[in-house]
Amino acid sequence: MGLINPAPVVGGNAEKAPCSSLERMVVAASRLLQNGQMVLVGTGLPLVGATLAKHVHAPKMTVVMEAVAFDSKPFALPFCVADARGVYRTPWMPTAVEVMGQFLQNRRIDVGFLGGAQVDKYGNLNSTCMGSYLHPEKRFEGSGGACDIAVLSGKTIIIMVHEKRRFVEQVDYITSPGWKCRDHRTGRLVDRRELGMWGGPSAVVSTMGVMKFDPESHEMYVDEYFADLGVTLGAMKENTGFDIRIDGARPAPPPKAEELEVLRTVVDPEGIFMKY
């Protein structure tokens, strides 16, 4: 198996500790990434999930970060896309002109992997603000490359903690467009393909399960739930801010000991994102 570089255990986490919901989410998300794919990874949880996939089952996946790191095999977890940890032994150092203006725009990125503050039932993502944009209740850091990645990747995978205030009927601001997004000419929400766009969100991985999008209506539904953590479909409905379909949902296969061990001892031993 592809352990790229073993790192020392810093946190001293007991290997037998029960899987947390953050760990569960990252393990499930990492499984959606595959060998051979070129994956453009956003900062934060997507970096953790992609690094885990690279170590456990997808060593031949190409991990690309928007700032500089290309086909990176980090020895230690980069905590942002410009971190020297991601640059170490990268074979080539592009800028955003090449990564975002060429690789991404020229349709060479198979998967975009994103987080955010809010997601809605059409997979629109908000990482800009809560409340009205011009007079926000809470202002966040902003898109970064998320909007570009959501518009231009072959498909996107979204990772986000499952809370009612985050899973909403309609996001307060569409930073990164999903299936039904803003037509700038009319202000209405339309199918992204009517705007000449390709791609679109394929899955949302949360702390409760894995959601997908109906091929007809493009509305989010529960595909898998984390029964091994005690998550029920009722609880998922309760923690979702819109009426989400749960018929046909299956329990997700539980995490393997190897995935948890690599996550805890190699990928995020400090608990920077996993908060041990």
Partner: peptide, 28 residues
């Protein structure tokens, strides 16, 4: 966005008034 910011600087660097992009569609 990262891409459009980069293209806007590239346009400035090239002495061009603007640059085309396929990004931003569908977004607020």
């Amino acid at each position: 966005t990262v891409q459009t910011g980069a293209l806007r600087l590239l346009a400035g660097a090239m002495g061009l008034p603007f640059m085309p992009t396929l990004s931003l569609k569908g977004s607020d």
